[in-house]
Structures are given as structure tokens and as C-alpha cells.
Design a protein around this nucleic acid. Structure first.
Lengths: 224, 224
DNA sequence: TTTCAATTGTACATTATTTAACAAAAATAA
DNA sequence: TTATTTTTGTTAAATAATGTACAATTGAAA
């Protein structure tokens, strides 16, 4: 019953703004990282063919992906690395400031708190919460862990955009409900259980066990 | 240059064993978890329609996915929950014992060490490694952190199947090379940088920043 | 200036994935 | 027993994603 990536777009006044296909969205960060690595090199342009050989996508897929957002390329030269990079920055929304909290300050929550990539991507880590009195008050990345009881108020008052959900599976749905009620816009879900949210909430499932399953499944296939 | 999911299968002597499409592999763990939740309830059968309404996939997709592996269903009843569950268990390879090590005992590595799902999925956590003398010797989940220098020997001698890679980005490629050389079969990669491995090595990218990017991108799209 | 080479952006073809539709089987009700 | 209902497994249709091919454009070389 979960809403898939529809939006019909017909009741939307704005003329274009065609929704970006999920498949493309998933590749954009890869282009972004690759371009970023190239920024420091002393080349100015890169062709789709060069990107292809580095990244393992076909050159035409790359051209097509990029053409989705306009015409960035320069014929017979390729793409201006700086230009493409900053466009991806914009398309990915990194120029918009977004606020985030982490719910659950176990090892995973702490690992998230130490993530160095937030700033570059426009995220501002505003708070960390836990329910365990032994953890509340500890400090990670200069943020003192707060009682999760205070989270709803904090989220609402500070207009927090995104919550990283790093609580035990049993708390997952309850906590997600709390977040939604508090007005969160997106949930970055690390729990290992399916979570339901209203369809206007952005839910990114970061379930790690899926990866574990995939490896297992592929190992078996290879051993056959 | 990375190998995508090809295998041609033509030079493979074995007759059938058609490779499972990636799209299906990704859904299998979801079926598995859902079925597992149903095991304890007092119903014996579940129809594709019921699964569909719970899981958000269409019923025909579910039937088709499952039919890929044979005919599990019972007409006019649906699927025997126990039977389907244990078949998924087998298809996902959970009945094969797999050994694993964790490379990097920062917060993320420690979170992985505490993962409770390994056993159920047939993984046996055999070792944790780090390069930091201040961390070597600490104990997580009853395993003492070893010096990463000892990893190659340990992996080769114990015939380790899978390594969870939880080291800083700068160490990623070097560590992956070491793992491959030591004879690892699969890498569960949590680093935030692209890693290259020979195409016969199973590489599962668990890059978390991709999720962060996706949320950002979708937030922007919605705000338009 | 003209030709040649490089490389984009896009139309068309192909392949992959999903949905829709339904015949066949099995249970239940009449 | 016969009709009705349910629900699978599968075929065909629809949709989506990717690859191929190439005209158009631009820069560089002749």
C-alpha cells in the first residue's frame, strides 16, 4: 500500500519540473563524487566516454542522464567539470540548507554523528536523542545526547527536516510515528524492520541486512 | 570498467541455474522478513493479494517473483507460510554457513559487531580488526579486536568468506586489495568512496551517503 | 577557408521489468 | 454431484530502462 514514485504532475501548476526517475537519482551521487575527485586535477573537461571508462556506466547512459537536466556539454570537448559539478550540487539540493537529528545514540547513531559529509551536502546536524539515561548527556561530535522524550518538541520548534532513525527494531514504528507527528519531512531509516509512513513523507530505507542477504544469495548462486 | 551483472551463462556447463535477476534478489529479503513475522501468527496460508496489501508490491509481481523458483502456491488457498519461509531461507542461502570478519572497529564496525541477524542468515562472525593500537584488544560481542596486519593470514587460514569493510575512505582501496589478495569472496563495503575489485568478487556497496543524497534530492523536488 | 576529428544530444531499437488478464486447479457451497 | 469462488502460475501487453546509431556542432589542423 506504500506509495511508489508517482506524482501525476497534472494537478501541478508549474509547467515542467518533471520528476527525476529513481534510477537516475541513484546515479547522480556517483557522478557527483567522481566529478569532485576530478576538480583538483588540472583537466577542465571530461567526456562521457572518459567518465564511462572510470565509472562502469555506458557513455550513452551518462549523456542521457545528464541531458535530463539540460544541455551541459560542449560538443567536441565534453563536459566542463566545474560547471557539471556545481549543477549536480544544485540538482541534488546540496545548496539548500537542511536540518537533521539522529534518534538513537548506540554505536550506529554515534557513527552517523561522526559523518563528515553532512556539511558538503547541506545538512546541519542539530541534535542526537536516546532513551537510555546512561547515554543521555554523553557528547558526540560536540552534541550532547538529549532525552528522546524531548524530541517532538525539539523537532517542531526547530523545524527539523530529516531524522536518522537508528533505534532498535521494536521501537522503529513507534518512533517513526512520533517523528511524523512532530512534523519531520524525511526519515533516513536504519532499522531492520519495515516502517510505514504517510506517503508525503520521504522515507529512505537504509536496511543493512538487505546487503547481507544479497551477498549470501550471490554466494550460493556462484557455488552452484 | 566495473563488471555489471552479467555472466552470459553460455560458457557455463551447468544446464539451468538461471541467474536470479537483481530486482528479484532485492525483494527476496523483504518477503522473507514479512513471512517470518507471519510465522508466529495462527494463520497457515497467505495469498499474494494479502502480501500485496501489506508490502506495497502488486500481487502479480509477487506471484511472478515466487514462481521464478518453482510452484510453491496452492490454488484457491495461497502460499503455505512455513513452506514459503523455508524455501526463501534456502534460496537466500541462509542454510549455508558463511564466515565473516569486520575490518575497522570504529563506531560503525562496533555497530556491525553487535548485529543480531548474522546467525539467522547463516553468518558466523569470526574476527574484528583495526589498525589503531588504542582499539586493538578491546572486546565487542565477545571478540577481541585484532591488529589489521594479521588479517590476511587470518582470512586465508580460516577460509573467511565475507568481509565488512568499515574503514576510512582513504584506506578503502588499499584494504580491499588486501582482502582480495587474502582470498575473500565477498566484500560488504561501507566506505564512502568507490572501490574496485576483480569481477569475480562479490561487492555490495552499502554507501550511506547515497541515501542522504536521495533525501536531499527529493526534498528539493517536493519544494518546487 | 575547408577538411577532419571529437563528442554531444537525441531518435530509434532492444532488452528488462511490471502489470493485466485469464485458464486451470482446488476448495466450498448449493 | 454440480456450480461457484478463490487464487495460483503463466501468457500476453504495457511500461521503463538501456544501448545503438547518427546528425549536428564545434574546435583544430591543413
Amino acid at each position: 500500500m506504500t506509495a511508489k514514485n508517482e506524482s501525476k504532475n497534472s494537478d501541478n501548476a508549474k509547467p515542467t519540473v518533471k520528476e527525476i526517475p529513481d534510477k537516475i537519482v541513484r546515479r547522480l551521487p556517483h557522478y557527483y563524487v567522481q566529478l569532485k575527485n576530478m576538480l583538483n586535477k588540472d583537466v577542465e573537461y571530461v567526456s562521457s566516454e572518459q567518465l564511462a571508462s572510470i565509472m562502469g556506466y555506458s557513455s550513452s547512459l551518462i549523456r542521457r542522464d545528464l541531458s535530463h537536466f539540460g544541455q551541459f556539454g560542449k560538443k567536441s570537448y565534453g563536459y566542463d567539470i566545474h560547471c557539471l559539478y556545481s549543477n549536480l550540487h544544485r540538482i541534488l539540493g546540496f545548496n539548500h540548507e537542511k536540518s537533521m537529528v539522529i534518534i538513537g545514540a548506540g554505536f550506529l547513531g554515534r557513527a552517523l554523528a561522526n559523518n563528515k559529509s553532512y556539511e558538503e551536502r547541506g545538512y546541519l546536524l542539530r541534535g542526537i536523542f536516546d532513551k537510555d539515561p546512561a547515554i543521555i548527556g554523553l557528547e558526540f561530535n560536540n552534541l550532547r545526547v538529549m532525552d528522546v522524550e524531548r524530541a517532538p518538541e525539539f523537532i517542531a520548534e526547530n523545524n527539523i527536516d530529516v531524522a536518522a532513525l537508528a533505534v532498535p527494531a521494536l521501537e522503529a514504528q513507534k518512533t517513526a510515528d512520533m517523528l511524523v507527528k512532530a512534523g519531520i519531512k524525511g526519515i533516513w531509516d536504519f532499522t531492520e524492520t519495515p516502517v510505514e509512513v504517510p506517503e508525503d513523507i520521504i522515507l529512505i530505507e537504509q536496511n543493512m541486512n538487505d546487503g547481507l542477504c544479497k551477498i549470501s544469495c550471490k554466494l550460493v548462486q556462484k557455488s552452484k
